[in-house]
Nucleic acid binder design. Structure first.
Length: 389
DNA sequence: AATCTCAGCAACCGCCCACGA
DNA sequence: CTCGTGGGCGGTTGCTGAGAT
């Protein structure tokens, strides 16, 4: 069907906003809220299209926007999430709460994309460019397949998180939200808690809904698994040894408890070259499968650990490079461990006819690990005199 | 000093989706 | 179920300023 323009464009101003227009828009929204964007320009006395007002507000005037240079952690997060999600800027922006999708998109296009390209990494696939030559021979294509596979689940997860954030902003209660999610999207797991502002530690609880056969309401007393990490160690605690088994009848809960520990948020600037390289951590991923519910879940420990402003649960570690390998192994091993607890096969996630249990799973995780390690190694081995920084 | 080139970024455009009538 | 509308999203454009020639 046709689409009418969002507003009558005759006589409406376009182009850069003047301070006076900004002031009008700000004053109106502060007093009345934006309400209907379409009606706002008239009410606020602006000769602008409602869409233009909305964009100006969301990308520039909103009071909770952080402007200025991106920190190293933010850069890492963007790169990692882009590797998983592609150009889904709004989804990426949910992990950088004070940045707008437009700003992230611009930053990617003008800085990060070029930087990766100079490093010999294809900014689209996040593969080393010469990898294409090798892929047919050494199985790297399988890595790409795995990455794509994981991305699908990451994508679903981010969508669930983003939806939750939106809902929480509307002050909807978790019970109704969980009910909605569990009834409308049974394969989605839900962020039920996130880091508190200003805290040096953070908690992220991820809950996935029960099967269709169980109650719609969520049992908050469900077994909890806790993943705790700081820069030195990772602990996985199962509040109930049968946590995964219990998921058959009740929603299980996995709780990520991150402690910044000795890892502090780095300030931007400084020796950018070394900082950027030494902090460019990759994304260790492990998939947990529960074939009883056909749920696959990606446990992510990615990106930057920002302690003071994350509302969305970006479980992230600003880990020293030396910890990364160990962290990867731990996560991968943990996921194997949990997987064994779940007595799992590949669930709905097995799309290549495997279902061969540990054998395939082992290769799967090994391939993922090698893939990401190859990126990390490439970055770390970049010559310090590289013009990329 | 004038001109050119290019990077950075704000803003626009068009498409899509959700929702309500 | 269809249609109209509002709003969100990603791609792209075009202005601006800094640096190079």
């Amino acid at each position: 069907m046709g689409r009418s323009p969002c507003c009558d464009k005759v006589g409406l101003k376009k182009g850069p906003w003047t301070p006076e227009e900004d002031q009008k828009l700000l004053a109106y929204i502060e007093e009345h809220g934006h309400g209907s964007w379409r009606a706002l320009p008239t009410k606020a006395g602006l000769q602008r299209c409602g869409k233009s007002c909305r964009l100006r507000w969301t990308n520039y005037l909103r009071p909770d926007i952080k402007r200025g240079k991106f920190s190293l952690q933010e850069e890492q997060t963007i790169i990692q999430l882009h590797a998983l999600l592609g150009n889904r800027w709004s989804a990426i922006a949910t992990h950088l709460p004070k940045r707008t999708d437009n700003e992230i998109k611009n930053y990617w296009n003008t800085h990060l994309k070029k930087r990766l390209a100079k490093m010999g990494i294809d900014p689209v696939t996040h593969k080393p460019k010469n990898d294409a030559l090798l892929s047919s021979a050494d199985g790297h294509s399988k890595n790409v397949s795995n990455l794509s596979h994981m991305a699908q689940w990451e994508s679903a997860r981010l969508e669930a998180e983003a939806r939750l954030v939106r809902e929480s902003k509307l002050r909807s209660h978790s019970s109704s939200l969980l009910h909605q999610l569990t009834t409308t999207n049974p394969n989605t797991y839900v962020l039920v808690n996130s880091s508190s502002s200003g805290s040096t530690s953070a908690q992220l609880q991820l809950k996935w809904p029960s099967s269709k056969h169980s109650h719609n309401s969520v049992d908050l007393e469900s077994p909890t698994s806790t993943l705790t990490y700081n820069s030195d160690q990772i602990n996985v605690n199962h509040a109930s040894s049968s946590a995964m088994g219990a998921a058959i009848m009740q929603p299980a809960m996995i709780e990520f408890v991150g402690s910044s520990g000795s890892s502090e948020t780095k300030e931007e600037g400084g020796d950018n070259e070394q900082d950027w390289k030494s902090h460019l951590s990759f994304t260790p991923l492990g998939l947990v499968h529960d074939h009883h519910q056909n749920i696959s879940m990606s446990m992510e420990a990615a990106g930057a650990w920002t302690t003071n402003d994350h509302q969305v649960g970006n479980v992230a570690g600003d880990m020293e490079a030396a910890d990364q390998e160990g962290f990867t192994n731990l996560l991968l091993n943990n996921s194997d461990e949990v997987q064994s607890l779940s007595d799992g096969d590949r669930g709905v996630d097995s799309d290549n006819g495997g279902g061969s249990g540990s054998g395939r799973g082992s290769d799967y995780y090994e391939d993922n690990k090698h893939y990401w390690n190859s990126i990390l190694n490439l970055v770390n081995s970049s010559p310090s005199e590289s013009p990329m920084f």
